[in-house]
């Protein structure tokens, strides 16, 4: 039986007096692919950013393995990573972008090179290694950002609409990568989509959101 990796209790996120997200109870089991589905503006991105501590939330609402994320930011940073729907390229090459997080973790240059080469090969973007990141196309940048996150080898990956701007061939590659992460590397993947669920078949658990609330 899988353990609970993230749990949410009585979460309320507001912008001014408007409620953006209201979740009473929600659990994410480890080593599964969780799909958060819903139309634009339903709170998918807000939920993932809140879970990754990129948005301030009240105490005792979101827990990573039982620990309140608001007072355990370092644990969240070391164990989860979030990828934007439209990723932001850091100034420099694709190699620099992918190696940046590893450098922050003080990993030796030799190991960094090996890890970066592996991830470039996995996502089939070897040719982009020395390209300047902000010259990449939307699809290439999406894959570069996924590589930048996956290389960190975190426990939980948040992917915000990871296939929204890539071609069909790349969609398969990204979905295979997500399956590899969960079923081979025993990680947890939480990703979002606003597309029709009839086109989405890759998930162990699905959360449907609408106007900031979970719907059946």
């Amino acid at each position: 039986m899988s353990d609970i990796v993230y749990s949410i209790e009585n979460l309320l996120i507001q912008s001014g007096k408007t409620s953006i997200l209201t979740i009473e109870n929600l659990n994410f089991k480890a080593q599964q692919i969780h799909l958060i589905a819903g139309p634009n503006g339903s709170g998918k991105t807000t939920l993932m950013k809140a879970m990754n501590n990129l948005i301030r939330v009240k105490k005792d609402c979101i827990f990573y393995k039982g620990k309140d994320i608001t007072i355990n930011n370092e644990i969240v940073r070391n164990n989860s990573v979030y990828v934007h729907q439209n990723p932001y390229p850091l100034k420099g090459s694709v190699y620099y972008n992918i190696s940046y997080g590893l450098k922050l973790r003080k990993i030796s240059e030799e190991i960094i090179q090996t890890k970066v080469d592996e991830i470039l090969y996995m996502l089939n973007i070897k040719d982009l290694k020395n390209k300047t990141a902000y010259t990449l196309s939307a699809g290439e940048l999406q894959k570069c950002a996924l590589a930048r996150a996956i290389v960190l080898d975190c426990e939980v990956f948040f992917f915000d609409e990871p296939v929204s701007s890539v071609d069909i061939k790349s969609v398969d590659c990204i979905k295979e990568t997500m399956q590899y992460l969960v079923y081979e590397r025993k990680k947890t993947v939480i990703y979002t989509t606003h597309q029709s669920l009839s086109t989405e078949n890759l998930y162990d658990n699905i959360i449907r959101l609408d106007t900031g609330r979970i719907v059946k």
């Binding site: 950013k49 990754n52 501590n53 990129l54 930011n73 370092e74 940073r77 070391n78 990573v81 979030y82 934007h84 439209n86 990723p87 932001y88 850091l90 940046y100 997080g101 922050l104 973790r105 930048r148 996150a149 960190l152």
Partner: peptide
Amino acid sequence: RLSETLKTLGANGFTYIVA
């Protein structure tokens, strides 16, 4: 997204300011 990208990749405190 710059701030969020740096934070989610693990930059904090001094490393965040430098980046």
